[in-house]
Design a protein around this nucleic acid. Sequence first.
DNA 1: ATGCCATACGTTATATCATAACACAATCCA
DNA 2: TGGATTGTGTTATGATATAACGTATGGCAT
Lengths: 131, 131
Amino acid sequence: MAQDLKLTKNQSLVFDKLSAAPGPLSAYDLLDQLRDQGLKAPLQIYRALEKLQEIDLVHRLESMNSFVACAQPNCHAKTGLVAFAICEKCGVVSEFSDEVVQTRLAAWADERSFTTTKTSLEIRGLCQGCG
Amino acid sequence: MAQDLKLTKNQSLVFDKLSAAPGPLSAYDLLDQLRDQGLKAPLQIYRALEKLQEIDLVHRLESMNSFVACAQPNCHAKTGLVAFAICEKCGVVSEFSDEVVQTRLAAWADERSFTTTKTSLEIRGLCQGCG
DNA sequence: ATGCCATACGTTATATCATAACACAATCCA
DNA sequence: TGGATTGTGTTATGATATAACGTATGGCAT
Ligand SMILES: [Zn+2]
Ligand SMILES: [Zn+2]
Ligand SMILES: [Zn+2]
Ligand SMILES: [Zn+2]
């Protein structure tokens, strides 16, 4: 909420909803939960999400078509790679990063002159409590 | 084609089409290309893809909702982790694996008693030719 | 061979996820 | 103050994926 200053009304609504959620939400989940606040169309959600992703306040989970608020105050996505561990039972998502993995992937790309724009790394499984 | 022996007609059609393709195809791309062969409904494609993924002949690219035939005769997905580098311009997908990354992620999971069932790692960007 | 089970198939309908196109409003900043 | 940029609201449409139903096929134990 502190850095919401730059956010528009719709962006704030979406970000606050995601921040308060215990797990990832789909765009349509968000829409359903924000109809009270006047949002009516999917595009309103997707546009807010798009901006929030650009500034790394929100991440998209590719493997489940849904979105989470960033866990870190200063997300590592800004500088490097973010990874997610997703529990398939309780839905909890852990955001983390790993220098070694990041270095390793950078090396792979460098050796092949591959210019990386975005990396997605998602681990699915069961968390400690659910395993 | 050699190991198609175990595959059903629809599975073979889908796998052969994917194998011949220069890049990833969506389920509906496949459907369009297989109407001649009698396939009519999305489910026919999705069911074939499901089976093909189970036996690691086909991989799903989460970040683009599409599918590729496995590049390796004996895919590393059976034993460990597969990664993909996807060129956003020409569409070429490179399948690779990395022991260090794999080990590193396994360690992360182990430390947190997270039971991994599937990992997806996709690097988007520009390949050498397109960069 | 018969009966049974597991898997695959075909079909229709529906659910879920995402963007195109257009007009208008707010904001920034030269 | 005016032009550029960004955000908004709305309608329509496109793209991806699954539910539910019944039938058919193939392996395999009796
Ligand atoms: Zn983050
Ligand atoms: Zn859990
Ligand atoms: Zn493979
Ligand atoms: Zn390329």
